[in-house]
Amino acid sequence: MTWRKLLRHETILALLSVLALIVLASQSDKFFTVDNLLNQGRLMTEVGLIAIIMTFVIITGGIDLSVGSILGLVAILLGVFWKNLGLPLPIAIGLGLLVGTLAGLINGIIITRFRVPPLIATLGTLALYRGIAEGISEARSVRGYPDWFFVLGQGQFLGVPVQLWILGAVTLVAAIILGMTVWGRGVYAVGHNETAARYSGLQVDRIKLAIYSASGFAAALAAVIFVSRVSTTRSDMGTGIELDAITAVVLGGTSIFGGRGTIIGTVLGLILIQALKNGLSLAGIKSDGTIVLIGAVLILTILLSNLFHRNGNR
């Protein structure tokens, strides 16, 4: 029985990550340098923030396809608020975060009030939010942000990229809420059996509303960091990031049917993906080749994990 415990999904994943790190480190001596690793953390932050909250979403048995579009919308609005409306940048950022959270709340309302399946609801808002971003921006980009703003995406604090501190804090808070609080247990209960959770007196709809709003907020935060990192705003920002985030979450062992998953798994999934991307590019493989490998790793990991847990699809 104990060896079965050892073969938990997270263990398989950790072993895979270590294996990947060893192979990659042997391919290039640049890989295991502090500079490189920290820089990779910088690149991981936007997907990371979204993936951490996406873990909650998927554990409740839902999905949020609209995060990439919320990212694009908030990025565009940041530029509009600051440049076209002339608001001070901190207020523009605050409004951007608010809009992102509201966009997530709207997802939540469509899903809980009208009982629309999350896949469809967020497919609709994916088109809607991106459409609004495209309509407002008309493919124009906004540049020329003040220097202090770039600290968020390009600066360092105590030698570590600023956004990595943010990602670390969000991860820690998320892990504590999901793993150690009654509310966190409720999230699992909703995903495991929603009807049972409802009859146990859990505020299922309120939990979902909070989670989808948080997902919108995470996407908005990622948008601010993204804009700060690349110094410009475009309406196609974040296209496809929802699939990257979902890949990391599922790779991390969260069941797509809900009810099972951990933050640590998602973090391992994120690290494995980023290590593969970076290590292979240092070893001279083009980034498109890396995407192939990530797809294969995703399918193989879930297949392996299914083989070790023959009983039950979950």
């Binding site: 699939l243 890949t247 797509i256 498109d288 990530i294 294969a296 995703l298 399918i299 297949l303 699809n313």
Partner: peptide, 19 residues
């Protein structure tokens, strides 16, 4: 393989696009 179709096709999307 009893892998949910969204996971398989998500992986396949990466493989086909990258390839």
């Amino acid at each position: 393989g009893r892998i949910p179709s969204i996971v398989v096709t998500l992986g396949m999307l990466s493989i086909l696009r990258g390839g």
